[in-house]
Design a protein around this nucleic acid. Structure first.
Length: 567
RNA sequence: UGGGGCGUGGCCAAGUUGGUAAGGCAACGGACUUUGAAUCCGUGUACCGCACGUUCGAGUCGUGCCGCCCCAGCCA
């Protein structure tokens, strides 16, 4: 590859993000004995979305870059919201994205006993107490952003009484909400998280893994650092909103005097024309704005998978957007660019006509058929070729014919000659119309000397159309998608409006009666193709034998559309 | 009017110890083309949020402003 006299200019060292810089710093100073161990800690209360994919790219990516490990850990500390269905879905998605979490899956619930013991330790130490205040009262006592809170009347109970009460909380002697265990820190702290945060609440609720073994459950702040500590995590990477929680994360670990990981925060991902909160996604599902978590319009991993996105394209996208602390909204166009780029390289080409228009080749012998060779990929010979049938009647795209075409229209029109891709050059003749004047069929004549699409006399033909032989065509359903929202930022709503007001009513368009080449009849679910001159499509699970259903993955760039728009 | 963060071209985002603004996406030209795809060339006056300082020299240091985001769940 390289010339003998080629000058090798050293590639500029790839710039590292601030997290990797911090990790390298710790590696240099031997802070964690040279270890790098991260974790990806989803709560099983919904499906993963592209934002989680970013977190994973960071968590797993950092571990991988420095020869470390990344634990997949379910942060299942709230039984009322969590379900096994979600853990299964999450595990599948993480694997599909290609992340290696070893042979073990971790669960916060596995540490409940240890957490409980540590809680007793803090009570013994005099820095945790049982509070009888109601949720409302606790809120009142907490103060506001600008006014300090005040101590709970139960703040100074004796260690013995606190221990007794806490044990009875565990034993199930009190109803939900009757008492909580709180850390005794500082009700006047300017950081609200430090105003005696709740460590445990009573929840007589069945947990998807521990059943009814517990009726008290740890709060996130109390639990998370302990989980990280138990697993020997070195760098606990999370999103920006936890920045304020870091002092508390540190406080618990310091009070206990146990192994202490470093929490580092980064900005989470926002994408134009979509929402990224699990609550909103759940709402879209529950209220029927989409057909489920895996609806191809959803930014969920399962939705993107069904739509035809590849893990590689997603990884490429995540790699390109970078990691920083500035809150940003990435242009959907970048994600689509990554998908196109990956699919362009790997998707086999096929011919499919979405909105069929019958073309009759008058001078082609009736009843004759022939099989023509066509490449599966113009730039990748290794993908080979296939045979496609040709006959007297074929379908072309309705938009590839115009009775009164503008000058730059390189397609079929009265008297014009175009090429049917890999078949023949045909010249437009008569046009059939129905009573309303709609074009119903077009008659053309073909040049038998142009088999394959090349004219022996060297004449050039500007337009090349895709087509499908009518008698051989397979009927298919094609689902075309547009953005789920009509606004770049659906969350940016005016007074009295709601993000749901911006749901795009035209985000799904189902086309039936599409005509596809026979090779597509037995395409496997999940298979991805480029329908030449149109877009990339993936076979939907709703497909049945001989009745394929295709999802639009992403359109191809369309400079003709731009030319039209300008006119 | 408390605390914690952030502010580099339309969108992301690099900018180590201050030396005179990478790259990607988008957009716009053009070449090529049996996908108007792909590919290939080319195009940006970024007052580096603003204002003062320090300095021979500041996106990088200092001070003061301004703007945006997060925090008052017994959610994570």
């Amino acid at each position: 590859m390289s010339d003998i006299n080629e000058t090798h200019t050293p590639e500029a060292a790839e710039s590292k993000d601030f997290i990797r810089l911090m990790v390298e710093d710790d590696l240099r100073t031997g802070r964690f004995d040279g270890r790098v161990h991260t974790r990806f800690p989803p709560e099983p209360n919904g499906y993963l979305h592209i934002g989680h994919a970013k977190a994973m790219a960071i968590d797993f990516g950092v571990a991988e870059d420095y020869g470390g490990q990344c634990n997949l850990r379910f942060d299942d500390t709230n039984p009322v919201k969590e379900e096994t269905e979600y853990v299964d879905g999450i595990v599948y998605d993480v694997q599909w994205l290609g992340h290696d979490f070893g042979d073990k899956i971790f669960y916060a619930s596995d540490y409940f006993e240890q957490m409980y013991l540590w809680a007793e330790e803090l009570i013994q130490k005099g820095v945790a107490y049982v509070d009888d205040l109601s949720a409302d009262e606790i809120r009142e006592y907490r103060g506001t952003l600008t006014a300090p809170g005040k101590n709970s009347p139960h703040r100074d109970r004796s260690i013995e009484e606190n221990l007794d009460l806490f044990r009875r909380m565990r034993a199930g002697e009190f109803p939900d909400g009757a008492k909580v265990l709180r850390a005794k820190i500082d009700m006047a702290s300017p950081n609200m998280n430090l105003r005696d945060p709740v460590m445990y609440r009573i929840l007589h609720s069945e947990h998807h893994r521990t059943g009814d073994a517990w009726c008290i459950y740890p709060m996130y702040d109390w639990a998370h650092g302990l989980e990280d500590s138990i697993e020997g995590i070195t760098h606990s990477l999370c999103s920006l909103e936890y920045e304020d929680h870091r002092p508390l994360y540190d406080w618990y670990l310091d009070q206990l005097g146990i192994y202490h990981p470093q929490q580092i925060e980064f900005a989470r991902l926002n994408l134009t024309y979509t929402v990224m909160s699990k609550r909103k996604l759940l709402q879209l599902v529950n209220e029927g704005h989409v057909h489920g978590w895996d609806d191809p319009r959803m930014p969920t991993i399962c939705g993107m998978r069904r739509r035809g996105y590849t893990p590689e394209a997603i990884a490429d996208f995540l790699d390109r957007i970078g990691i920083a602390k500035a809150i940003s909204t990435v242009d959907l166009a970048l994600l689509e660019h990554c998908v196109r780029s990956d699919l362009n390289a790997r998707a086999a080409r096929r011919m499919a006509v979405l909105r069929p228009l019958k073309v009759i080749i008058d001078n082609y012998p009736e009843g004759q058929e022939e099989w023509l060779e066509i490449e599966n990929h113009p730039q990748d010979e290794a993908m080979g070729t296939r045979q496609i049938p040709f006959s007297r009647e074929v379908y072309i795209e309705q938009e590839d014919f115009m009775e009164d075409p503008p000058r730059k229209f390189y397609r079929l029109g009265p008297g014009r000659e175009v090429r049917l891709k890999s078949a023949y050059l045909v010249t437009c003749g008569e046009v059939e119309k129905d009573a309303d004047g709609n074009v119903t069929a077009i008659h053309v004549t073909y040049d038998p000397e142009t088999r394959g699409g090349e004219a022996p006399d060297g004449r050039k033909v500007r337009g090349t159309l895709h087509w499908v032989s009518a008698p051989h065509a397979i009927d298919a359903e094609v689902r075309q998608y547009d953005t789920l929202f009509t606004q770049e930022n659906p969350e940016d709503v005016a007074e009295g409006e709601h993000f749901l007001d911006y749901v795009n009513p035209d985000s799904l368009e189902v086309l039936t009666g599409c005509k596809v080449e026979p090779a597509l009849a037995e395409a496997e679910v999940g298979a991805r193709f480029q329908f030449m001159r149109q877009a990339y499509f993936a076979v939907d699970p709703d497909s049945s034998a001989g009745q394929p259903v295709f999802n639009l993955t992403v359109s191809m760039r369309d400079s003709w559309a731009k030319i039209q728009k300008r006119q």
